[in-house]
Design a protein around this nucleic acid. Structure first.
Length: 577
RNA sequence: AGGGGCGUAGCUCAGUGGUAGAGCAGCGGCCUUUUAAGCCGAAGGUCGUGGGUUCGAUCCCCACCGCCCCUACCA
């Protein structure tokens, strides 16, 4: 929405004029203009509303209903009701009434008549001559209203006749039970609150088109209670996490989302530009390096819950922007975090779902405990028997051992339908180990599992194990074959960190850093206490706790290709102002 | 990026090489305790877009667009 220059030449479809864009004459207009994207009309259109009169209006499909409902606005006005009033003072919500009086008998309701004022969206209407029923929905809960001509009067009943599914209204009346014993409101007065110019999704099937569910989430939320519930649960999960960390003396912080140097993860960043400074900035791929600067600064326990952006593919488990909880705890190591995670996941699942066992797809996930496997142990455990004798942890630890095992596995995989461990270019021992794990074991980790001791080669920010510098004190939590958390003892030796950064830059590749984050190294030189840190993927966690098969089901507005009716640049007249 | 699937009325879906149907929603009528309200009536579609084959395409073929799923990159 934007303020326009005083005179704007608008090419639009005129609702009343019913003519094509070409037929509509150019005209001058002073006021406000809102560009509106329209799913079903090819050309970009504008909605123009003047203060005094609505002369022109965008039209959406279904056009006939849209026009009919527009006319009803005038009829509602004619009845003396403001079609867009400013407020409604309610005493109860549908949810409150259902909660409080769901069990009250007809006699009890009759004996304790109380006036109620309730607002909601009309989701069903059953008109029967001089009376009718409707359901009002508010915050996902619904209550029936009974509107009788005798009770609401001539004008009130006319207003009731003008209502459409989707309209917002308020009612004043009292509770009673119908013949069929449904708790209902005996309406004495109707207040019109807002017009729905477009119809609700089909009442029986709801909104099933997945694309529309993602694009027009507002309709999905109205029509599908399960979808609404997912996002309520998501909010509760985040609440619980905050509570968990707040209770442990953590403070919540916000670090930059626009980074001059992308870092903290191996991923391709989005690039943007700041005009005044004339510099390119990168949408952050991880908050890690900033949060650790804060531990240097004496914030011994910090967390941040916010978005990361990675310019990678989109799938049922990946959205280009996703939400991470990252937290850092000074004076602890990765073992402490593993213990804490077991507690956290058990507590969280219990408080969110009521049980530590959670149904996800076809499996029951048991969060009451977590199996712990080192990465090498996982490879040995899930090595397919058909591929020959599994390697031992000692073999995998030896120079060239992981590579040899992967080659042996691949020789078998080629002959069978098993996934192939494809490597790009020459790999180090640690990279071979990681590759082999991902190929044969990752998707087998259905029950919550802590996988630990990652190769140093693929863990540039983790502290090495004192007894084996080829491994780091790092773990990841896998559930349902998905990585949901990643934590480690943070590398706080600046010299070693510099060595690893430089090695990454030398290695090159799209996901690798190209610049040295000098300030981060300087911060480490000021001394970072021993610290353990971790990131938890909130979207994936929500998937698990809401039994959602796709990450898009737990993100309100997942990234989709924009619907481009005509040429997207056609809105330039509006945007240019 | 590669492979597979889908796209028909506003919504949910049938269907056919001879230019299409149902339910719901919407419109008109009847109905003062219904609840997927009911009954009567009328209306609603460039069958995703563009080519091709054909006397004729919504159907067959090709391309494109969009979405979904799997694989690859990634968390």
């Amino acid at each position: 929405m934007g303020r326009l220059s005083p005179t704007v030449v608008i090419r639009a479809v005129a609702a009343q004029a019913r003519c094509s864009i070409e037929q509509l004459p150019s005209f001058s207009f002073t006021g406000w203009i809102r560009p509106v994207s329209c799913p079903s009309i090819a050309a970009p259109l504008y909605s123009v509303s003047a203060f005094a009169e609505r002369t022109f209006c965008l039209e959406f499909e279904p056009r006939d209903q849209f026009e009919q409902r527009l006319k009803k606005i005038e009829q509602i006005r004619a009845l003396g009701q403001d079609p867009y009033p400013r407020e409604f003072r309610w005493t109860d919500t549908p949810a409150m009434l259902v909660e409080q009086f769901g069990k009250a008998t007809a006699a009890e309701l009759e004996a304790n008549k109380r006036e109620v004022r309730v607002a909601g969206r009309i989701i069903s209407i059953r008109l029967m001559g001089k009376a009718g029923f409707a359901h009002l929905q508010g915050a996902g809960k619904r209550i029936q209203i009974y509107v009788k001509k005798d009770a609401v009067g001539e004008k009130g009943f006319q207003l009731f006749h003008l209502l459409d599914l989707g309209d917002s209204i308020g009612v004043r009346g009292h509770l009673f039970r119908t013949k069929t014993n449904e708790l209902s409101i005996w309406v004495e007065e109707i207040f019109f609150l807002a017009k729905a110019l477009l119809p609700l999704p089909e009442k029986w099937h709801g909104l099933t088109d997945v694309e529309l569910r993602y694009r027009q989430r507002y309709l999905d939320l109205l029509a599908n209670e399960t979808s609404r519930q997912v996002f309520v649960t998501r909010a509760r999960i985040i609440q619980e996490l905050r509570r968990f960390f707040d209770a442990r003396g953590y403070i919540e912080v916000e670090t930059p989302m626009m980074h001059p140097i992308p870092g903290g993860a191996a991923a391709r960043p989005f690039i943007t530009h700041h005009n005044t400074l004339d510099i390119d900035l990168y949408l952050r791929i991880a908050p890690e390096l900033y949060l650790k600067r804060l531990t240097v600064g004496g914030f011994d326990r910090v967390y941040e819950i916010n978005r990361n952006f990675r310019n990678e593919g989109i799938s049922t488990q990946h959205n280009p922007e996703f939400t991470m909880l990252e937290f850092y705890e000074a004076y602890s190591n990765y073992r402490d975090l593993m213990d804490m995670n077991e507690k956290l996941f058990a507590l969280l699942t219990k408080s969110i779902t009521g049980s530590t066992t959670v149904k996800y797809g076809g499996s029951d996930l048991d969060f009451s405990r977590m199996e712990r496997l080192s990465m090498r142990e996982a490879i040995v455990k899930y090595w397919p028997r058909e591929a020959g004798e599994p390697p031992t942890s000692e073999t995998l630890a030896s120079a060239g051992g992981a590579r040899e095992a992967t080659n042996r596995y691949n020789a078998w995989a080629k002959k069978s339908a098993a996934p192939y461990a494809a490597s790009k270019g020459e790999l180090t021992d640690g990279e071979w180990t990681g590759l082999l794990f991902e190929t044969i074991a990752e998707d087998k980790l259905v029950q919550p599992t802590i996988l630990y001791d990652f190769p140093t080669d693929i863990s540039p920010l983790s502290k090495q194990k004192p007894e084996d510098p080829s491994l780091t004190e790092r773990f990841e939590i896998y559930v349902a074959g998905m990585e949901v958390a990643n934590g480690f003892s943070e590398l706080n030796d600046p010299a070693e960190q510099e060595r690893r950064f430089l090695a990454q830059i030398a290695q090159g590749g799209e996901e690798m850093p190209k610049q040295l984050d000098v300030d981060y190294l300087r911060a480490l030189c000021h001394g970072m206490p021993p610290t353990a840190g971790e990131g938890i993927g909130i979207d994936r966690l929500t998937m698990l706790l809401t039994d959602s098969p796709s990450i898009r089901d737990v993100i309100l507005f997942p990234l989709l290709r924009p619907e481009s009716g005509g040429e997207p640049s056609g809105t330039s007249e509006a945007h240019g102002a």
